[in-house]
Each structure stands twice: as C-alpha cells, then as structure tokens.
Amino acid sequence: MSTDIGPRVSELLPTETWDCLKTLSDAVLIDVRTKPEWDFVGKPDLSSLGQSLLCIEWIRYPDMSANLRFAEDVKDALDGATPSKLFFICRSGARSLSAANAVAEAFLSEGKSVDCINVAEGFEGDVDPQKHRGGLNGWKARGLPWEQS
C-alpha cells in the first residue's frame, strides 16, 4: 500500500504531446534543459501552433547547480495563469520528470491542481548503438517541428 499522497506526473510521447498542444490552446510546453542545449542542439518550435515555448533551466549552466527557484520561475513565466496542462521536456525525459514533479507540488501547495506531464523520450531521445542521440526516438527523431540557432 502506497502512502505517497503527493502529485502524480503522467507521461506522453512527443507525438502525443504535440497533438495535445494542437488541441489545447492553454497548454504550455516548458523546456528545462540548459541554454547551451537550446542554442546548439535545438528546441521545439511551436510557432505553427501560435504558441511559445517556455525555456527555464532546471539545472543552471555553467556550474550545473540546481535552480532552486524553478517552480517560482515557471509561475512567473505563466504570469498568474493556471494552464490546463503543463508539459515538461528535457534531453531524454529524466530532468523534465523531476521538474514536473516540483511544479506539480508547488501548485498543490497553493491548493491548485495542474496536470503536469513529462514528455517521455525527451527532445533527443535514447542513445543508439553508436552512442548518439537524436535518431532513435524523441521529439527530433519523431519528425516534430524544431529549430536551432
């Protein structure tokens, strides 16, 4: 029997996330990777949906320290809104799961319920047999819109 009464974070594949973002105008995608990852690897492009991506580091570059204000940064970026769904994405799905749990907990502590969803596989996905990311699964490999600066 589980005694864990904290918020639960669900997971969706990148394509399922895209479909939700297409149909739910108040849903928000938050990329929790670092600035170098956004700049050099790329990031999801939601412009065809008329939406903007929120980029908020879960781990701060360059010292790779925890962003202790992450949940507050998310709330500040939402400017008082409580979206129906918040999607979280990172490279492969691990950091974003932690970030989603932190935000779900922060909203719950205020008595608000927000559906926080981790994007399984992340932006680059799993490592292939050649130890490369981006071709096996994930946002990029599934052919979803993305951009690179």
Score class of each variant (00 low, 15 high):
Lys85Ala: 13
Gly111Gln: 07
Glu110Asp: 15
Asp39Thr: 12
Asp115Arg: 03
Asp45Met: 03
Thr34Leu: 01
Phe70Gly: 05
Leu54Glu: 13
Ala100Gln: 01
Ser98His: 10
Ser113Gln: 13
Glu37Thr: 11
Asn67Lys: 02
Pro44Asn: 08
Leu54Ser: 12
Ile89Thr: 10
Ser52Gln: 15
Ala94Thr: 14
Thr82Lys: 11
Phe107Arg: 00
Leu29Ile: 13
Met64Ile: 03
Leu86Gly: 06
Ser109Gly: 06
Asp115Phe: 05
Ser52Glu: 15
Lys85His: 15
Ile30Lys: 05
Glu110Ile: 04
Arg69Gly: 08
Phe88Val: 04
Asn118Lys: 07
Lys35Phe: 00
Pro83Glu: 05
Ala94Asp: 12
Arg91Gly: 14
Ser109Glu: 15
Leu53Glu: 05
Ser109Asn: 14
Ser48Pro: 00
Ile56Ser: 03
Lys85Asp: 04
Arg33Asn: 08
Ala99Leu: 11
Asp76Lys: 14
Lys112Phe: 06
Ile89Leu: 14
Val119Ala: 06
Asn118Gly: 12
Met64Pro: 02
Ile89Ser: 07
Asp115His: 13
Asn67Leu: 05
Trp58Met: 12
Cys116Asp: 04
Asp31Ser: 07
Ala100Met: 06
Ser109Tyr: 02
Met64Lys: 11
Ile56Ala: 12
Thr82Asp: 13
Asp76Trp: 01
Ala102Pro: 01
Thr82Pro: 05
Asp76Phe: 07
Leu53Asn: 03
Arg60Ala: 11
Leu108Met: 15
Ile89Glu: 08
Ile56Cys: 12
Ala77His: 13
Phe88Gly: 07
Cys90Ala: 09
Gly80Glu: 12
Asp63Thr: 13
Gly111Ala: 13
Asp31Thr: 06
Pro62Val: 11
Lys112Ser: 11
Val41Ser: 08
Ala102Gln: 13
Ala66Met: 08
Ser92Leu: 02
Gly50Glu: 04
Asp115Ser: 14
Ser47Pro: 05
Ser52Asn: 15
Arg60Glu: 14
Pro83Leu: 03
Ser48Leu: 10
Val32Ser: 02
Phe88His: 04
Leu49Gln: 12
Val28Glu: 01
Gln51Arg: 15
Leu68Ile: 06
Pro62Tyr: 13
Asp31Ile: 04
Ser47Asp: 09
Gly80Gln: 11
Glu110Val: 00
Ile117Leu: 14
Glu105Ile: 02
Asp73Leu: 07
Leu68Met: 13
Ser92Lys: 10
Gln51Pro: 01
Asp39Phe: 09
